[in-house]
């Protein structure tokens, strides 16, 4: 390995690491607000990328049918609950608004899809669709489990992951897609060729993180999320609706996931289940941050990207073995340094 190859590997590693970082941040966000270890985060990546791919070819993305189905299920369940508890029209209006919004989004996508917008517009549409899926998913699967233990939530998350993987295969088929690069720019930095897409990923990831830290530091919504993360009961006593905090967290996580998918799809072919593996690696990064620290998770993500890029060069076959085996020592370390947050909280 000479210097040039090393530089190339570093560039690769940082690019992939930035994607992992976005996902790791989303996972930390979901966990701190809802206590859910959100295994299906990676599915948002696939859904985002494949929705974009469909839009690029002028097809109606099948994700909108998923959104409609989920929205209808939520509406049916809420209605049943309303009738049982004897709540009247006031609740019914809320239910109706939720369904109608989802239908309007899907309707717009349905009408606009064949018009073949530029890539950036399609990218935004894809992210929006996935965000709505994320929010509806929370309402359907996780809201009723709000007070369950971390373990139950984790098993439920696995269930959602299974369902989404199957739906992914049904919607997109077994073939993968790749979208055209967003930026055809090729830069030269000394001996190094820098792809425009790599720069785009790095810049977008940095912007997303800056926006998030602004959101958490300076806006009321962000502060409400932080309060919910710190203490659910306390937040509720202060009038914060913790269920709404959950939907907000899921919306943000879905946005980050879909954005990652949109960003990475010009670099590699995305299949319906690619997201899961990418998500797992983001997940290891999140665990490095103890599932609570954003900066640590982001740094961990870059480290994993680099590790992966170098192990791919040395021994491409065992790359996944190494990355997943790495999590054990990391978990041990985290487990010992976060002792207090362990057992009793789990009960």
């Amino acid at each position: 390995m000479n210097g040039n190859i090393a530089l190339l590997l570093i560039q690769d590693g940082l690019t992939v690491g930035a994607i992992y970082a976005l996902l790791a941040v989303a996972l930390v966000l979901v966990f701190t607000v809802t206590r859910i270890i959100f295994i299906p985060q990676g599915e948002f990546v696939s859904f985002g990328a494949l929705t974009l791919a469909a839009l690029q070819t002028g097809q109606v993305p099948k994700t909108i049918w998923l959104l409609i189905a989920l929205a209808c299920l939520v509406a049916v369940r809420d209605s049943v609950r309303c009738i049982r508890s004897g709540e009247g029209l006031r609740a019914a209006r809320g239910i109706l608004v939720n369904v109608v919004v989802s239908f309007v989004v899907c309707g717009l996508v349905y009408v606009l899809a064949p018009l073949q917008f530029p890539l950036w517009a399609d990218a935004i549409i894809s992210v929006v669709v996935v965000v709505f899926i994320g929010i509806t998913l929370y309402r359907l699967a996780f809201e009723p489990l709000q007070s369950a233990s971390i373990l139950v939530l984790l098993i439920a998350a696995v269930g959602v992951h299974l369902a989404l993987t199957g739906l992914g295969l049904a919607m997109f088929g077994a073939e993968g897609s790749r979208t055209p690069p967003m930026f055809d720019f090729q830069g030269q930095l000394g001996p190094l060729q820098i792809g425009g897409q790599s720069i785009a990923i790095f810049v977008s990831a940095s912007v997303a993180m800056a926006a998030l830290s602004f959101f958490f530091g300076a806006t009321l919504g962000g502060k409400a999320l932080r309060a919910t993360a710190a203490n659910r009961v306390g937040a509720r006593l202060l009038g914060i609706r913790t269920a709404r905090a959950g939907t907000l967290a899921f919306g943000l996580a879905a946005a980050l996931g879909a954005a990652s998918g949109v960003l990475i799809s010009p670099l590699s072919t995305i299949y319906y289940d690619t997201g899961f593996l990418i998500g797992l690696k983001g997940f290891i990064a999140a665990v490095i941050g103890g599932l609570v620290s954003y900066p640590l998770a982001a740094v961990g993500a870059l480290a994993i990207g680099l590790l992966e890029s170098f192990t791919t060069f040395e021994t491409s076959k065992l790359k996944d073995v190494i990355v997943f085996a790495l999590i054990l020592p990391v978990l041990l370390l985290v487990s010992f340094t976060h002792r207090s947050s362990g057992e009793e909280q789990n009960n």
Binding site: V321, F324, L331, V334
Partner: peptide
């Protein structure tokens, strides 16, 4: 190794070596 992990880190640990052994 894994039984020393506290709380929810334990199931994650099992997931990790499960994946590693598979690959």
């Amino acid at each position: 190794l894994t039984m020393r992990l506290s709380g929810h880190f334990l199931p994650l640990g099992t997931l990790a070596w499960g994946l590693a052994l598979y690959f």
